[in-house]
Design a protein around this nucleic acid. Structure first.
Length: 422
RNA sequence: CGGGGUGUGGCGCAGUUGGCUAGCGCGCCUGGUUUGGGACCAGGAGGUCGAAGGUUCGAGUCCUUUCACCCCGACCA
């Protein structure tokens, strides 16, 4: 991609109405735009990053048998009444609206904008799950969730509209459920590893429900987090403050002295639902003996947008964003310095060579001064910066440096390909 | 929803106790000079001061109402 064609621009000043580092940097760099409190637009570069995060999650969900679907955001109220979650006393984050009823402004049936999809999917699966042979099944989606938070905050970390990956497991019995539950745990850990958050993300024990003692959260250590957790570094686990009791400590075989209190953000969670939804929504199957039984369910969420914000918070330095390679909007920031025909020609050529080697390049071909280009390269957090200037052209080389390195080094185009591909 | 704070060109800000054609920096447009860490000169466009109402000869400055945004708390992926 060429900077001269990118419609967004960077800003020297952070917006006054954002306090959170993630929002300040993402807006300065032109990755996102704020529509209103807790509602953000993703611009070209932000969209690329978000989709890369989504792709990592997608690959890992597919690897454990997930089948991608895409459910509607508009929800009829029937299913929610069956589960008892339509009433505002039960769920206080509803955005509700109504259909039209004929001409004019007559109000028709009530609708809700989905804040989660247990009800919708459970009802849907009644059409397909009839027999034990239909189980297990693992549909998942990346969907916009709407939650009318009392207070959105922390930039893109707590939004009223946000993308969530939600997978739901449908199993015939507890054993089958437990097996998959363990698999998702590992898949989740792998996801955070791939996204560069492995070291600071902990499997965290949190409150369960009627069907399990615990649910499991994936908590990433960050100051901007809203949760307090107690980390056991040796065992790579943590305990959410909400279940931090002597009994739980004994259960998990950890001593108080081994735990360290930290602030963290919940980037994912997995939850055993049991028959919480299959019973009221009558999702049942017939087993080998002809017995009709309710399906055992689980739900597994991850917030790609929240992960994006967390990554910005964690890796950013005083110059701007620092993206991990796997999700950076481009691998290389190619900057031409100077406007001589030679420089432009060599930079254009290198852009072509890198592109043909399938290396994603953000090519700063603008007629701008070097300082501005370097500052933007840093702000946007591209992993490698490659510079073509009179000096480098004279040596028939180019200059390369990583985002966080102090010094650059000279290299051939072939070296560059090798270095950035690693 | 309780407490605190803020709304002035696209962005960041200034604007004394009400006073004259509402300023500054960045960005933008035109021309020129520049090109290794956000250049410089000259010229130019763009705002009725969140909105509504009121007080006054006169309101960005005062009053009322209202909307929006940020932070803390409570609540929540």
């Amino acid at each position: 991609m060429k900077m001269s064609q990118l419609f967004t621009r960077t800003s020297k000043t952070a917006p006054a109405d954002e306090q959170a580092k993630n929002a300040q940097l993402l807006i300065k760099a032109g990755f996102i735009h704020k529509e209103m409190a807790g509602v953000y637009d993703y611009l070209p570069l932000g969209s690329i990053v978000l989709n890369k995060i989504i792709q990592v999650i997608r690959e890992e969900m597919n690897a454990i048998g997930g089948q991608e679907i895409f459910l509607s955001a508009l929800q009829p109220k029937d299913n929610w009444e069956k589960s008892g979650r339509w009433h505002d006393d039960a769920v206080d984050v509803w955005f509700k609206t109504r259909m039209h009823a004929g001409e004019g402004y007559h109000l028709g049936p009530e609708l809700g904008l989905g804040n989660t999809h247990e009800e919708a999917l459970t009802a849907l699966m009644r059409n397909f799950i009839k027999s034990y042979k239909d189980l297990p099944s693992y549909p998942y989606q990346f969907q916009t969730k709407f939650r009318n938070e009392l207070r959105s905050k922390s930039g893109i970390m707590r939004c009223r509209e946000f993308i969530m990956k939600d997978l739901y497991s449908f199993s015939r019995d507890q054993a089958q459920h437990d097996k998959f539950y363990e698999k998702t745990k590992q898949a989740y850990l792998k996801i955070f590893e791939r996204l560069g958050l492995g070291d600071i993300t902990y499997l965290t024990f949190a409150s369960g429900g009627s069907f399990s003692k615990f649910s499991h959260e994936f908590q990433t250590i960050t100051d901007i987090g809203e949760d307090t957790i107690y980390v056991h570094e040796g065992k790579r686990l943590a305990i959410n403050k909400e279940v931090y009791t002597d009994e739980v400590l004994a259960d998990l075989g950890v001593a108080k002295e081994e735990l360290v209190e930290k602030r963290a953000v919940e980037v994912g969670n997995i939850f055993t639902l049991g028959t919480r939804f299959s019973e009221p929504l009558e999702l049942t199957f017939t087993d080998e003996n002809g017995d009709v039984k309710p399906v055992i369910m689980g739900s597994y969420g991850i917030g790609p947008g929240r992960i994006m914000g967390t990554i910005v918070e964690h890796f950013a330095d005083d110059k701007g964003i620092v993206w991990p390679k796997e999700i950076a909007p481009a691998r290389v920031y190619l900057a031409s310095v100077g406007v001589s025909d030679q420089v432009v020609k060599v930079a254009d050529e290198l852009y072509k060579i890198l592109s043909e080697a399938n290396i994603e390049v953000l090519y700063d071909d603008r007629d701008a001064r070097p300082g501005e280009k370097f500052a933007d390269a840093d702000l946007m957090g591209i992993p490698y910066r490659v510079v073509i200037s009179e000096k480098t052209v004279a040596h028939n080389r180019c200059e390369i440096k990583t985002r966080t390195a102090q010094e650059a080094q000279l290299a051939d185009a072939s070296d560059v390909i090798k270095m950035v591909a690693a």
